[in-house]
Design a protein around this nucleic acid. Structure first.
Length: 269
DNA sequence: ATGACAACCTGTGGGC
DNA sequence: TGCCCACAGGTTGTCA
C-alpha cells in the first residue's frame, strides 16, 4: 500500500496527536508481522514520552525518551489515532495507548509491516539504504554514477532501496513517464541529462503526492483518517489501454520482475 | 557484485 | 450466485 508519500502523510497525520504524550501501555493482539513483534515492546514502550516522529525511507521512527519505535506499513498497513476504547476491527493488530485517552492503532490485513524497538538510532534494516529522494544528495549525477555498467532496467534500478529509498511502483511508473524514459531501458544506458530529468521528476511526483495527501488505493487513509487525492492525477499507473494524456497513444502494460509497469510507447524511449 | 525469483499474507475482482 | 486464479502499494533472502 503505502509508498513514501503515504508514509509521510501518516507521519504528519499522527505527529500532532502523539508528540509529548506518554505511552500508557501497548496491546499486541497479533504479533506475527513481517518479523515477530518483539516481546519486550510493551515493557520498553510503557512509560516512555514521545519526543518526535521522524521518517527514514518508508520507516516511521517514533522517538521517545527511552528508545525508538520503528514501524513499517508494508503493503497494507495503516496507523490511526482514535479513542483508546474503540472496539478493534479485524486486522487491528496493535494499540499504543497514550495518556490522553487516545491510542495509535495499527491495522494491517496482509501483515507485511513490522514493529521494531531500537535502543539507539541504528538498525541493520537501516544500514545500506540509499539517500532520501527529496534530499540534495539525490541527483541526476548520483543516479548516473551509480548506474554505470548496470544491466537491469532503469525502473528496477530506481526502485532499489540501496540506490534511492521511497520510490515504489506507482511513482516509478509516473516519474519515468514524466521524464520520457522507457522503463525497460538498461540503467547503464541512460545518459546523464536524462538522469537529471529523472531525478527531478521523482522529486516532483513525490512532493506533489505528499501535498495531495498520498494516493488513495483501496482503503488507504492518512493518520487522521482523511483520504489522499493523488489518484485522480496519475498519468500512467493503472491506465493501461487508455490514451496517453500527452500524445494519445494507447498506454501499454508490461511486467518487470512481477510488478506491473505502464508506459507510453510514444513518449518514452 | 549482480540480477532473477520466491517468499511472506489476505482481500478483491475478473472470468467462467 | 459461486468458485478459482491472478494480482495488489514492499522488502528480504536465496540462488545461479
Amino acid at each position: 500500500m503505502p509508498e513514501l508519500p503515504e508514509v509521510e502523510t501518516t507521519r504528519r497525520g499522527i505527529s500532532p496527536h502523539v508528540l509529548g504524550r506518554k505511552v500508557q501501555k501497548v496491546v499486541v493482539r497479533e504479533s506475527r508481522l513481517r518479523w515477530p513483534v518483539p516481546e519486550q515492546l510493551e515493557q520498553a514502550l510503557s512509560g516512555a514520552r514521545i519526543t518526535a516522529v521522524n521518517r527514514r525511507a518508508k520507516y516511521l521512527l517514533v522517538e521517545t525518551d527511552s528508545g525508538i519505535l520503528m514501524v513499517h506499513l508494508g503493503m497494507s498497513g495503516s496507523l490511526r489515532i482514535m479513542p483508546a476504547g474503540t472496539p478493534p476491527l479485524f486486522h487491528d493488530h496493535i494499540d499504543v495507548v497514550l495518556d490522553d485517552g487516545n491510542c495509535l492503532r495499527y491495522h494491517d490485513p496482509r501483515r507485511f509491516g513490522s514493529f521494531h524497538w531500537l535502543d539507539s538510532p541504528a538498525h541493520p534494516l537501516l544500514d545500506h539504504l540509499g539517500p532520501e529522494p527529496l534530499s540534495t544528495a539525490f541527483s541526476g549525477a548520483y543516479l548516473y554514477e551509480r548506474s554505470r555498467r548496470r544491466q537491469l532496467s532503469v525502473k528496477q534500478f530506481v526502485m532499489d532501496g540501496k540506490v534511492v529509498v521511497g520510490v515504489g511502483n506507482i511513482y516509478a511508473n509516473e516519474a519515468l513517464f514524466m521524464a520520457g524514459i522507457h522503463p525497460a531501458r538498461a540503467a547503464g544506458r541512460v545518459a546523464l541529462k536524462r538522469y537529471e530529468s529523472l531525478a527531478e521528476t521523482i522529486k516532483t511526483v513525490l512532493r506533489d503526492a505528499i501535498e495531495q495527501g498520498g494516493t488513495t488505493l483501496r482503503d488507504f487513509v492518512g493518520g487522521d483518517g482523511s483520504p489522499g487525492y493523488f489518484a485522480q492525477q496519475l498519468r500512467v499507473y493503472g491506465r493501461q489501454g487508455q490514451p496517453c494524456r500527452a500524445c494519445k497513444s494507447v498506454l501499454k502494460e508490461i511486467r518487470q520482475s512481477g510488478r506491473s509497469t505502464v508506459f507510453c510507447p510514444g513518449c518514452q524511449r
